[in-house]
């Protein structure tokens, strides 16, 4: 039986936005945490650490996100772990985001001039203090625009979690479409909802960039 697209269907889509946002937030926080470690490993003085981080990045950048989600979701079952779609999507997106953020931030760390490392070392700062007080604060300034840009990418990537059965915005759209059979209307609304999540972030990115530029002038 085909239902009409009503206010209730719209509310259902709207409420799915929270799951998209929750999944994005978890993937971003997890990805940022692991990504910082990856970025530091990529800029390490120790060759083995650098190579391991490079391998990690290439693995996740060189395979489709959808395959990574499949492998985490079905792989967990093969290994006897009962991973629900929520956990599988969060883990898969975290791994993927950490590889991309790690590579973005590596570039930002390396964009800090060599003389800054030298001056901090000459003053007696060891690696942790040197990173925390001298290098990372300067790298952050460079990192903000591409990081927020990646966050926009990440929010859109969460739509792939629909395929392993996690009910976020895209999956909700599929469900409503199956009932109403109005694909243009339904997916049009879904797209607008994604746009409303991503657009403010792009504006924020531009504003932060201007503010940091002023602060260091």
């Amino acid at each position: 039986m085909i239902r009409a697209f009503s206010y209730n269907e719209f509310l259902f889509l709207l409420s799915a936005v929270q799951w998209t946002l929750a999944l994005s937030a978890i993937a971003f926080i997890g990805g940022a945490t692991v990504g910082l470690v990856i970025a530091l490993a990529r800029t390490s003085d120790i060759k083995a650490v650098r190579l391991a981080a490079t391998g990690y990045i290439q693995l996740f950048q060189g395979t489709p996100l959808l395959m990574q989600l499949f492998l985490v979701f079905f792989g967990a079952t093969v290994m006897g772990l009962d991973l629900n779609p929520w956990a599988a999507a969060a883990l898969g997106l975290t791994l993927n985001a950490s590889a991309f953020l790690g590579e973005i931030w590596r570039g930002c760390i390396q964009a800090v001039p060599r003389g800054q490392w030298e001056a901090a070392s000459a003053l007696g700062l060891r690696y942790p203090g040197l990173m925390r007080y001298v290098i990372l604060p300067q790298a952050v300034k460079v990192a903000v625009p591409p990081t927020v840009g990646f966050l926009v990418q990440l929010i859109k990537s969460t739509s792939l979690a629909a395929i392993i059965g996690f009910t976020e915005l895209t999956r909700a759209g599929q469900i409503v479409n199956n009932a109403t059979f109005q694909p243009f209307l339904v997916f049009g609304i879904v797209a607008v909802l994604y746009f409303l999540m991503c657009w403010p972030l792009s504006l924020l990115s531009a504003r932060l960039e201007r503010r940091y530029a002023l602060a260091t002038r």
């Binding site: 003389g115 800054q116 001056a119 901090a120 003053l123 203090g129 001298v134 604060p137 602060a215 260091t216």
Partner: peptide
């Protein structure tokens, strides 16, 4: 002291001078 000064651009002059005494 370096040819290119290498001051920390994100810190004020006095903070540049305070960093190493505090953190080292």
């Amino acid at each position: 002291v370096f040819q290119q000064f290498n001051l920390f651009p994100h810190l004020t002059v006095v903070e540049n001078c305070m960093l190493a005494p505090m953190r080292v």
